[in-house]
């Protein structure tokens, strides 16, 4: 029996879908069987980022309403043998096309066949969020070092704590070491102080991530990138490995600490 992890954030544009794709792929690289589920009905993106758009035949709504069997809707990612699948969202309906009960049934079914089911949650706290959270055993909250994103993450954590699942864990995405250094960006400690949940990853802001997404291949497939390394480490932490989290150092003058701080991002 696998585990279902919902990737959520509240605010849009912080990198839920990119993180879902990368964490899912990273888990696959660790040898796990993974199914990605896109619940952003009407605004599906995960298939694009995974480069699987042109192979979609059926979607989540078709499965929920019984128009097809779940196996017919799953899109196999040929780059990873038989290990990575995508259950795409529908593009023509909206979030109300399915309900949490249907979602729960689908996720339960997938958990029997996969080690991990990664659920990409839409932005917002409405029906789409309720659907995405319904079948999940764990949650990962993505935030960026912006006050608005942290505020929304806080709201989402409050909602997740009411759900019957393990306490949510945090990924801070798109941190820019130079801005943090100058005090222009919230640092990791400030964010974890406010949100008060376990931090399982810090991902640096990197243009390569966008480039990779545009090519339909998640950044984790590139072994020489710092964002890729961050996602791989997150995957290892999900698997229970203890990979040290290198926080950004406290403000210090001196070139050595600045260098240390720069590398500290690569965690």
């Amino acid at each position: 029996m696998g585990e279902a992890i919902v990737i959520t954030s509240g605010k849009g544009g912080v990198g839920k879908t990119t993180s879902s794709a990368n964490i899912g792929t990273a888990l696959t690289l660790q040898g796990k069987r993974v199914c990605l589920v896109d619940t952003d009905i009407g605004l599906r993106n995960l298939d694009v980022i995974m480069g699987l758009e042109n192979r979609i035949i059926y979607d989540l709504v078709d499965v929920a309403t019984g128009r097809c069997k779940i196996h017919q809707a799953l899109v196999k990612d040929k780059r990873f043998d038989d290990k990575l699948y995508l259950l795409p969202a529908a593009q023509t309906s909206d979030k109300n096309a399915i309900n949490p009960d249907q979602m729960r049934t689908i996720i339960e079914g997938l958990k029997k066949e996969f080690d991990y089911v990664i659920i990409d949650c839409p932005a917002g706290i409405e029906q789409g969020f309720q659907n995405a959270v319904a079948g999940a055993d764990q949650a990962i909250v993505i935030t960026t070092p912006e006050v608005s994103a942290v505020r929304d993450a806080d709201r989402i954590i409050g909602l997740l704590e009411k759900e019957p699942m393990t306490p949510p864990r945090l990924v801070i995405n798109r941190i820019r070491s130079n801005m943090v250094k100058d005090g222009d960006m919230l640092d990791v400690d400030e964010i974890t102080n406010i949100l008060a949940i376990e931090l399982i990853g810090i991902v640096a802001d990197d243009e390569e991530v966008i480039k990779a997404s545009n090519h339909g291949e998640p950044i984790v497939m590139n072994p020489n990138n710092k964002a890729s390394l961050a996602y791989r480490n997150i995957a290892r932490r999900i698997l229970g490995d203890s990979v040290p989290l290198q926080h950004l150092e406290e403000e210090n003058s001196g070139i050595f600490s600045k260098i240390k701080k720069f590398f500290g991002v690569r965690s």
């Binding site: 709201r155 409050g158 406010i194």
Partner: peptide, 25 residues
Amino acid sequence: NVVRSGQVINTSGDLLLIGDVNPGG
């Protein structure tokens, strides 16, 4: 508890909260 954004705690009598009240809470 941490009182998070969007959460409201309403009690009669005095309230002793061990934890933060985050912005929006």
